[in-house]
Each structure stands twice: as structure tokens, then as C-alpha cells.
């Protein structure tokens, strides 16, 4: 049994056809799988290897190299905090302690209910709005304790 619905299989198939060479769609397909499953599992890798007609090692190589992909499921909401130099100067270390306290987990962990995972990230390209957060693929600038509380309240 496939780990994907027929509709999802169609979406993945489309990534093999979008670019001049099928492999050029591989990273986008992995992004898609990460979004659906909140991780890339062994079964997912097997499936993509067959779909893209490449050795499984090619899929594993990409899935383990890039920080966007995880082997274990992230929380339903993925929170990243920038630890780049400009964000550090703007107070990102304090925001790290604030997030750890509010979530009750350490950096790199997921809450027991699977709702939130929290990680620090390298530069998010928002040095003018530090400390920068990325919440479910959306950049948020000027993190404060208040903003973090507000964002957490909005996430279901």
C-alpha cells in the first residue's frame, strides 16, 4: 500500500514532468512529502526512488542533506528561530529561552502533544527585522515575548 492518496500521487508525478529533466523535480517533491507527512520516511524514500527511477541512495542523500527535511515527524506547527549574527545582536538568544519556557521543550524538540516543534535555524534573510522567526514557512520579524504568545494562541 502506498503512503500517498491517489491525488497526492498525481501531484508527485507532476513534479517528475515539470522540468526538462525529471530529477530537477526531486527537491520540490521532497518538500511536498515533508509537508504532508511532516517528515520523510523510509517508505517515502522508496516510493520516490521508484517514481523518479533513481537509486534509493539518491533520495536518501537529498533527504538527509537539506535541513528542511526531517526523518522524524515535526510538530504540526514548526517554529524556527534565527541564530544568525544580526538576529543574535537583536536578542535572539533571549527569544530562544522564551520559546523554550513557553513550549516546555528544549531547542530541537517537539512538544509531547505533537503540536509544536522548535528549532533554531541559520540566517533567514530577515536581518532587518531581527530576531526573525519562521513559523510554518512564514517569516515573522521582530520577535518579542508578546508576539510569540500571540502566534502560539493563533495556531490550532
Amino acid at each position: 500500500m502506498s503512503a500517498f492518496t491517489p491525488e497526492q500521487e498525481k501531484v508527485l508525478q507532476a513534479w517528475t514532468e515539470r522540468y526538462p529533466y525529471p530529477n530537477m523535480g526531486l527537491l520540490e517533491a521532497l518538500r511536498q512529502v515533508q509537508e504532508w507527512h511532516r517528515c520523510v520516511t523510509d517508505e517515502d524514500e522508496e516510493y520516490l526512488a521508484k517514481l523518479f527511477e533513481v537509486p534509493r541512495s539518491r533520495i536518501h542523500e537529498a533527504a538527509t542533506f537539506f535541513p528542511s527535511f526531517t526523518a522524524k515527524p515535526t510538530g504540526r506547527h514548526r517554529i524556527g528561530l534565527c541564530r544568525g549574527l544580526s538576529c543574535c545582536l537583536a536578542g535572539s538568544q533571549e527569544m530562544c529561552r522564551c520559546l523554550e519556557k513557553k513550549l516546555g521543550v528544549r531547542e530541537g524538540e517537539t512538544t509531547a502533544d505533537g503540536k509544536f516543534s522548535f528549532e533554531t535555524t541559520e540566517c533567514l534573510g530577515a536581518c532587518d527585522h531581527g530576531p526573525a522567526l519562521i513559523v510554518n514557512d512564514e517569516l515573522q520579524g521582530r520577535a518579542t515575548e508578546h508576539l510569540i504568545g500571540k502566534l502560539m494562541g493563533e495556531m490550532k
Partner: peptide
């Protein structure tokens, strides 16, 4: 012209 997204590596 087409678009493609990266996955977090500098």
C-alpha cells in the same frame, strides 16, 4: 521561466 525552491542549505 520557471521557479524552483531550495530546502534550507546555505
Amino acid at each position: 521561466i520557471d521557479l524552483m525552491r531550495g530546502a534550507g542549505a546555505y
